[in-house]
Design a protein around this nucleic acid. Structure first.
Lengths: 341, 341
DNA sequence: TTGAAAGCGCTAACAC
DNA sequence: GTGTTAGCGCTTTCAA
């Protein structure tokens, strides 16, 4: 015995291949491929033999090998930058469900911790994905260039920058901000304020702009603007600052629901204000907990499913031709944090 | 120029390949591979030439092609079944961060809508992933068999079944249930109740069992048990039923925080009870919103990072030899929903 | 140290 | 209809 018996060289992890199926069914491997890819002519009984053999062996096509040759991986990359905000799990839920319904899979990239979205893009591109969805963040023009160069369609959800190289889907934050102001004014609030989120985000800027456009015409006093982060803690902190300098404030528009929850909790439990009797509050997003009795928050609902639908449609259409910003209107949800006259 | 002049058959989507880099650097394609995979000997200046050429072309290794040959895809599948529950986004956040830190990527499967986790397993296995993490659900023994057969390590987070074919990581729900009971009893509650979650889940069963073990020894009266789903709405509905039949209840342990929020909201805003003066409430998980003033919920914290750490360690160790259940103790977080004597 | 060549599991031309 | 053949982009022997 010179060399030990050549052990079955097959890698531990691989299951049966098309060759195995072919052997068992007494056909060529190509015939098996035709059946599996449902592509090309196969006689009925041959097809049956192959399917039976595949079944018997527990054969599963290797999607990665298939992708290698077709140049299409049927994988969509989803890049998320803010898991902590309760809005984004709802986005991810809807997005993954919709993508899976198409028979595609999701490669998820979490940009939450050290890595920025931009740092992640090179990694994403190593996977020859069929598309990239970026939520909660913008791409630097550099990163956007890279995607464009590799021909992968990219869609930004809910943020945009001025580079104009990618399609963007967003709730109409500008109109939403106006609605918030109108709601507060209609309720009889005289002294309004904005407690916003991340200052350099389009989301925040548009909501503030819409709000101020309307508020400025009917408010006599100065309208304070405090902005930092889309977080509960920031809302809590900001409202303290706000009420310390402007105790007359009786209507607050918050950058999103998370901020609004922080604002509400401090108003009620620390600052001793009644909501909505003393101060009215409007949020943005309509996350699930906004409907809970403890908050019962009046807010602008983001049209989640429309946003997702549009995002996917844009990715499929590969219309790199004319990248544009697609705004979808939100919906005012009246609950209990704005007083009725 | 015999074989050099191949037609540029290259698919639109592919970027530069190792062949392109090799040509530019005047070396063989194999040399490029050695540099990229950091595997094998390459002379210093050759390596430099190659790296330079790769840079110049913007070369990115194709992870899928690499996986095809190594039989290792450096992708971990994460199967989630309940995005709506606020605990799971925190799990996903920690899990994805940890996996990315290893230089691996996450293929996310959302079993939330039509598809059950079991239905998803065949799809998962088509991707020759390096491991599978399943949260919020158990695998049928059939599905577990399939994974075992294909040699992919599987770890279940926070649920288990009796099949014993996979490793499982879970918070010690039994001890947690006991802690909850002890906490309520120490606070002087006399009439306890359990409002649980999904009845057929190990999570729920263990929490209930621990709770009843302790509660039964010091409670004279019958301890009502209501179980259905780990949802806010169920908590809200259940507490109505409960208080209608047993208005004397003064201590409630909830299956998780989401249920507790529903319970709290109804107690306070509909049933007119004061918490904790009239009724004390304990939750489970310690999701972020449990700390918010509106709830300020006393709860058992799941050791999120330990759970994730252990899960990853188990997947790497491939210890299919002795699949076991690994319990990690939770931590009682005292806040404001249990009265102090 | 390097290049030539084989081949991972699969699809797609192209013969027969 | 079916088999044969040539690769997809890469890693990995094996010689040189």
């Amino acid at each position: 015995m010179n060399q030990d018996e050549r052990a079955p060289k097959r890698k531990q992890l691989s299951g049966p291949t098309q060759r195995d199926v072919a052997k068992l069914a007494n056909v060529s491997q190509a015939a098996v491929s035709r059946v599996m890819a449902n592509n090309g002519y196969v006689a009925y009984d041959v097809r049956r033999r192959i399917e039976q053999a595949a079944d018997q062996l527990g054969y599963r096509p290797d999607q990665l090998a298939r992708g290698l040759i077709t140049g299409q991986s049927n994988i969509i990359a989803v890049v998320m930058a803010d898991f902590a905000n309760p809005f984004y799990p709802t986005v991810l839920d809807a997005l993954t469900a919709a993508i899976q319904d198409q028979g595609r899979q999701i490669l998820l990239f979490n940009a939450g911790h050290d890595q920025t979205v931009d740092d992640l893009i090179p990694s994403v591109l190593q996977y020859k994905v069929a598309g990239i969805v970026v939520t909660t963040a913008v791409l630097s023009s550099n990163a956007a260039e890279m995607c464009l160069a590799s021909g992968v369609p990219v869609v930004l959800m809910n943020r945009y920058s001025s580079t104009g190289t990618t399609n963007i889907v967003s709730c109409d934050n500008h109109v939403g901000g106006k609605q918030a102001a109108e709601t507060l004014i209609a309720a009889g609030c005289k002294n309004l304020a904005y407690i916003g989120g991340r200052q350099d985000s389009s989301t925040n800027a548009d909501r503030r702009r819409g709000f101020l456009e309307v508020a400025n015409v009917s408010c006599l006093n100065d309208i304070p603007v405090l902005e930092r982060a889309f977080h509960y803690n920031w809302g809590a902190q900001a409202v303290h600052q706000l009420m310390a300098s402007r105790p007359d404030i009786d209507g607050i528009f918050c950058g999103d629901d998370a901020v609004a929850f922080g604002v509400l909790d401090q108003l009620r439990f620390t600052l001793g204000k009644r909501v909505p009797e003393d101060v009215s509050v409007v949020g943005f997003d309509d996350v699930p907990s906004a409907a809970w009795s403890a908050y019962n928050l009046t807010t602008i609902r983001q049209p989640l499913h429309l946003l997702v639908q549009k995002t996917i449609a844009l990715m499929d259409s590969e219309s790199k031709a004319d990248p544009a910003v697609h705004f979808i209107p939100g919906e005012l949800i009246l609950r209990g944090t704005v007083r009725s006259r």
